[in-house]
Design a protein around this nucleic acid. Sequence first.
DNA 1: CATGAATGAGTGTTCATTCAT
DNA 2: AATGAATGAACACTCATTCAT
Lengths: 212, 212, 212, 212
Amino acid sequence: MRATPDRIVDAGLSLFSDRGFRGTTVGQLEAAAGLTPRAGALYKHFPSKEAVLEAAFERHVAEVEALHSAIELMPLGDLRAELTLLARFGMQTLVRERALRRIVLTEGDRIPDLKRRYRERIVDRSYEEVVSFIRQKMAGGEFPAGSDPEAISVLMVGALLGFTLEYDVFGRHPLGVDEDRFIDVIVDSAMAMSRAGTGPRPQPEPEGSHSR
Amino acid sequence: MRATPDRIVDAGLSLFSDRGFRGTTVGQLEAAAGLTPRAGALYKHFPSKEAVLEAAFERHVAEVEALHSAIELMPLGDLRAELTLLARFGMQTLVRERALRRIVLTEGDRIPDLKRRYRERIVDRSYEEVVSFIRQKMAGGEFPAGSDPEAISVLMVGALLGFTLEYDVFGRHPLGVDEDRFIDVIVDSAMAMSRAGTGPRPQPEPEGSHSR
Amino acid sequence: MRATPDRIVDAGLSLFSDRGFRGTTVGQLEAAAGLTPRAGALYKHFPSKEAVLEAAFERHVAEVEALHSAIELMPLGDLRAELTLLARFGMQTLVRERALRRIVLTEGDRIPDLKRRYRERIVDRSYEEVVSFIRQKMAGGEFPAGSDPEAISVLMVGALLGFTLEYDVFGRHPLGVDEDRFIDVIVDSAMAMSRAGTGPRPQPEPEGSHSR
Amino acid sequence: MRATPDRIVDAGLSLFSDRGFRGTTVGQLEAAAGLTPRAGALYKHFPSKEAVLEAAFERHVAEVEALHSAIELMPLGDLRAELTLLARFGMQTLVRERALRRIVLTEGDRIPDLKRRYRERIVDRSYEEVVSFIRQKMAGGEFPAGSDPEAISVLMVGALLGFTLEYDVFGRHPLGVDEDRFIDVIVDSAMAMSRAGTGPRPQPEPEGSHSR
DNA sequence: CATGAATGAGTGTTCATTCAT
DNA sequence: AATGAATGAACACTCATTCAT
């Protein structure tokens, strides 16, 4: 079995994300960590409930941060393929971040430091990854000179965030548009704004599965 | 002065949205409504704290709902102009909805009914407005036949939501992209995916800072 | 019935003095004040347990202080009679102060402010009353010129304090010497040090029970 | 290094006396004894926290008791000198007893046995030593026949106790009267009540430092 | 209608004590 | 003998809610 502090942090991440910080009692944390509830055993490992939040948050931020550091957009020689990869990676990260996002949303005002750390180490980095990709493609002539790379990045990241959040909150995809279809449309829209989009569109294959 | 129940509902909307349901005490509601705090006067008007949330939520949902019903996309004869109007309206609604969104985000799991009502009466309606607009334009030949109108709607609404949320949570626009620039890019992307986008692009002015 | 805050303060004075601050629980205070124990009703009237101590302490200090201010040593024209009166008054005050003394003894280190207030407003004043009495008598020639009025005062007050404390703590008078006998000896010793003491002693009545 | 139980007892004596029994945690005792705090190692040596108090108390009582047994009032042939010696010894013992006295004061009600032992083995013995001294001097004709030796003893011991306590609690001597001056006055008062006091006073040496 | 007082069910936290290693 | 982990019983304090006035 994992060590007790780890189990407490696991419990914290999931409970805080599900019920919020206030909504989670120390007894629930203990129970979820396999300790006797309301016995105070948590305090052998953490000085306070807030410290559990801290630790859980930090661990998760570090994990997601590592994910970002690991990513290396390999050049595939094909803009559409690269955009798809980028979008898929973004979606995946957002799914992973779910607990973090909920905690920031719920407790961000009470503990602004969480908000700051999440923004600096996760959110800002995401935008920068996308914007640097777009800029590089602009330099390579794949996006027209007048493009607004920041705005395009904000559009793409925002759309991914909005889509993910919708699913998080309501448990279903809006208008029945699933992940694949959403990735397609986000890539389509980027392609359409690229140099490629100015010529004839990439030919919707007449029988196309979903990218109709 | 407004009637006491109204003042309590006002207080509820703002306090619940700022501090969450659990984070708001009955005493704070009373104080904010001009009653003696912790004296229990609230219970003369509402049977419970939850009933205040109910009432506050319902009132706000009804307001935003009315907004949606009032909208009537007048045909401007120009796709870009119409898209811009649509985007601006969506943004505006999302800003208005802020308190609702925060309450659903924070308390949606505890009181699933709130979530359902918000989704059915606000969120779904937004998607349907956009998708019906796109479908209509497809019928009019302004979008290519192979387009995925649902996906395009989800992209647009999701992007607006993501952008707004970012501002709500962090108090600043990502990458410094302000609302106007964001509306531009969202419209650009839709235009690019439209029939218009398949031909030559709408004139990137050679020197344009960021094609607004 | 007295008002609730008053009843709480009464309870506090007696419980704190009997069991110490730490040794007294809020539930006990509530119970002793006629409230449901462990129901938190105390917090309607005081912000914290410590605030009850504060209030109880302050009220009692003020009472004893008033006692000191009220005293007016009337000249009886007889040194022995005046000394007896002084000693009796001192003893009485010390008995009244019992609760204060115990609180200072028990909690003085944790809350140094209590100590300071007790010292400044009660203790120091006692010493000064006695020393000013002795000085006045020295000026009147009733104490020899070489006397040490401060030391004599410290002796008298200290003796009263020691005697009282003994009774407080052990519930009985040491060596069976009761209050009257003690007052006698304290007066005797002062008289003996006075000018009168240098001549023949004030007539030990040959059959005297114990009064000297 | 001393054995662990001894170190625990040392820690107990000082901590209990400084913070009281309730105010001292087992963890603090362990830490002060060089053990890992809150690890429960204390229970290898003592069955409970109370047992530590017991042991610490008993050890200290025995020490002070030994002091009393050791004393042997040697006849100096001079009443004043003997009284001074007695007073100095009493003062010294009281200073040594400080921790005991504080523990009895603080915990005496909770654990009446402590009180009883302290009284029987320390306090009563002190009174008896003094009273036997005075009686002996009365028998030798140095105190007048009508004297009340018990009362005189209570006066002297009480005065010493009061003086010492004042210093313990407030950290300063009342009215600036230091130990020497206090011993002088206590001896003066006893001398004044003695046969010697009935004649002319012992002549304040014209240049006397403080025995004025 | 509003207020002050009271209540009971929690909540975070502390701590003496036990136990397996 | 010492440690780390766990337990259960408190405790101060909060808060939604009720009730008499």
